[in-house]
Design a protein around this nucleic acid. Structure first.
Lengths: 249, 249
DNA sequence: TAGTGGTCTAGACCACCCG
DNA sequence: GGGTGGTCTAGACCACTAG
């Protein structure tokens, strides 16, 4: 049996991009494009290394990155295969703004509140600050297609970053945070549902008692500091959470 | 400055367990126990390798595993630090049965239906089988604390595994699948909310129009085959999805 | 038995961060 | 400038799978 090998791989040793990463990207692109078809074998690591003038560990590192992404599966004694389609993104720290933008919906935002308030017990516990101490409160209404989609309420430690209302209406909160040099690391989320109150229904142009999706999220940076506590509500009639996940191997 | 080094590390070269894995587990245990405190530096990789009689790549592999888990953070020019707490589990392919059991709630299950049915367009698309061909249908009511919690409806390809009603009432579906030698690989989920119909409300002892959490999930094995399509409803008053996630580095 | 991935070694040079 | 992690090499032996 002969392998279809229209696979054009090469690395640029003058580039500052790591060799394993160059290879990894090329393989991913080939999978994406369909040049590497699902189920096909990748060819063994040694040959691949020789062909590219790389060492085997470097080639393995490239392949491992794609295995971690769920695009490839290794089988001892068999080889490395392309997974049969179906993998998209492994659940990111989703930003509603980015989600909507990716869907081509050019989201709009209205800032309802942008102030400081004393922390409630719940907020204080989430952010790890003393109860009653001032925290930043941002409340926004997010639109898509000119219709309200969600009410986003965020609490942040004071002094973490400047939050101009103008900026908040032009982009997402996470993007602002990353721009301020904050390295997001992990988050703990709870997703539930409940009925809309009269006030919430009014804000979201729903009827009282309509089902709402709720999400609470505490986000931490890489030093373990809580950088944001959000409690959001979404119109269940217009929005749902969608994500891909990989099973722990 | 002296490092607190009550850290007892060793590897057993006669063990079949990979050296990097032994080290990784010991480090994780030390973090779990608090011997390695959040924010503390791990000591540089070269020393660690020398101290254990390992090569640096092996030590790096052990550390990398914990970085991937979100327990450690590497900083070039600084060192490797223990993350300040907060990381629990990085979102697994959650089984309601396992979740409830972990919460000490000894879940009970009633099988409502366990039959074969022709696949609807939606089910056929999800499972990758011809529309109208027979698929396995399992419908269960899950209880916790003697109260109904969720109605779980699963469609599976025929012939994948035997699904005795008796087994289904004693454990979770994923556990049955793993026991049948199926390697779960990835899943695509959608979580939303809607109002309960009269029939659903009756089944779940809610009132008509009460908010329900909905989840649809297609699960794939490592060959890319769809092994299960589920569309479930949960009482929003009694249940919410909770998970930890890591930000793509 | 032949071929594959899984693990491991003992070096090397570089980029980055800090004092 | 000294120390850290980031990358890379050129080998080696083993465990598993297949035919």
């Amino acid at each position: 049996m002969d392998f279809p090998k229209p696979l054009q791989l090469s690395v640029d040793r003058t580039s500052p991009v790591p060799l394993y990463f160059q290879l990894s990207q090329q393989l991913e692109a080939a999978i994406e494009k369909g040049t590497l078809t699902p189920g096909s074998l990748l060819g063994n690591e040694i040959d691949l290394a020789n062909r590219l003038g790389l060492s085997r560990p470097t080639v393995r590192q490239a392949i491992q990155a794609l295995v971690d992404k769920g695009l490839l599966v290794r089988r001892r004694g068999v080889g490395t295969q392309v997974v049969h389609s179906q993998v998209k993104r492994p659940l990111e720290l989703s930003s509603l703004y980015d989600d909507l933008e990716a869907a081509g919906q050019k989201p709009a935002t209205t800032v309802l509140r942008n102030t400081f308030e004393p922390a409630t017990a719940e907020v204080a516990a989430a952010l790890g600050v003393p109860e009653g101490s001032d925290v930043h409160l941002v409340e926004r209404l997010r639109y898509a297609h000119g219709e309200p989609m969600a009410r986003l309420r965020n609490h942040l430690p004071t002094g973490l970053l400047p939050l101009d209302t103008e900026y908040l209406e032009g982009t997402g909160l996470y993007r602002l945070m990353r721009g301020a040099g904050i390295t997001l690391h992990s988050a703990r989320q709870t997703v539930g549902a409940r009925a809309a109150t009269a006030q919430e229904a009014d804000l979201l142009t729903e009827t009282e008692g309509a089902p709402l999706l709720t999400m609470e999220r505490t986000t931490f940076d890489d030093t373990g500091r809580a950088v944001e506590f959000g409690s959001h509500i979404y119109r269940a009639s217009r929005y749902s959470f969608e994500f891909q996940l990989l099973v722990r191997p």
